[in-house]
């Protein structure tokens, strides 16, 4: 049990997926201008990432490895993720319309979110067991949500500040993300 807690902490803080591993940075900058969209994106990622992590792990362990076709991993994983996102979208639309309205446009965007694909590949490369893969996927997703929501809070404040013209918008966003990354960098060596 202790091992899983250490694994979770290392995935959420020490190797934070956005600020330490550089995965999923496009939605990080794209959806962090408003708190509302940041929360929507964070929830959608947690939802899809956990499911994708589990399904790709099963695909890899029980299908790709026994048949010796690991070279199809890239194509297989991306197809699974794309199909999953589509399926989740249809399912939510029918059965939980409130959640669908909340996640809305963020769901289709997740197909090209490299955080999802990245975590699936990390799970496989590190040769995690099923439980470890589950814990890792969930913790990375929580780390993604944490960093995104913190960053959205900071960005809402920046709108009130006077930023020099060349630095406006994406540029100051990146510099701010750097400062946030510095905060997370302080966790290095903790685990």
């Amino acid at each position: 049990m202790g091992d899983y807690i250490v694994l979770a902490i290392s995935c959420i803080f020490v190797n934070n997926i956005l600020l330490g591993q550089f995965l999923g940075n496009c939605p990080f900058l794209g959806t962090s201008k408003k708190m509302e969209t940041a929360v929507g994106m964070a929830m959608a990622v947690v939802f899809v990432l956990v499911m994708a992590g589990v399904i790709t792990w099963i695909l890899n362990t029980y299908f790709l490895v026994p048949f010796g076709i690991e070279y199809l991993r890239t194509i297989g994983f991306i197809l699974v993720i794309a199909a999953l996102v589509q399926f989740v979208e249809m399912f939510l639309k029918k059965s939980i319309p409130a959640l669908y309205a909340g996640l809305g446009i963020f769901l289709p965007l997740i197909t090209t979110n490299c955080a999802v694909m990245g975590v699936c590949l990390i799970n496989v490369n590190e040769e995690y067991t099923f439980i470890q893969a589950l814990v890792t996927s969930f913790s990375y997703a929580v780390g993604f949500g944490l960093a995104l929501i913190l960053f959205a809070g900071v960005r809402e404040r920046i709108l009130l500040a006077r930023v020099p013209k060349p630095l406006q918008d994406t540029s100051i966003g990146l510099v701010t993300a750097g400062m946030l990354a510095l905060v997370f960098y302080a966790f290095k060596g903790m685990v």
Binding site: L167, S171, V175, T176, G178, M179, L182
Partner: peptide, 22 residues
């Protein structure tokens, strides 16, 4: 070479490019 430097460096390069565009 660490993570924070990557963000700051890219942000500043973008600012320089914005400056050059004007």
């Amino acid at each position: 070479v660490e993570a924070p430097g990557a963000f700051v460096c890219l942000g500043l390069m973008l600012a320089v490019m914005n400056l050059a565009k004007k």
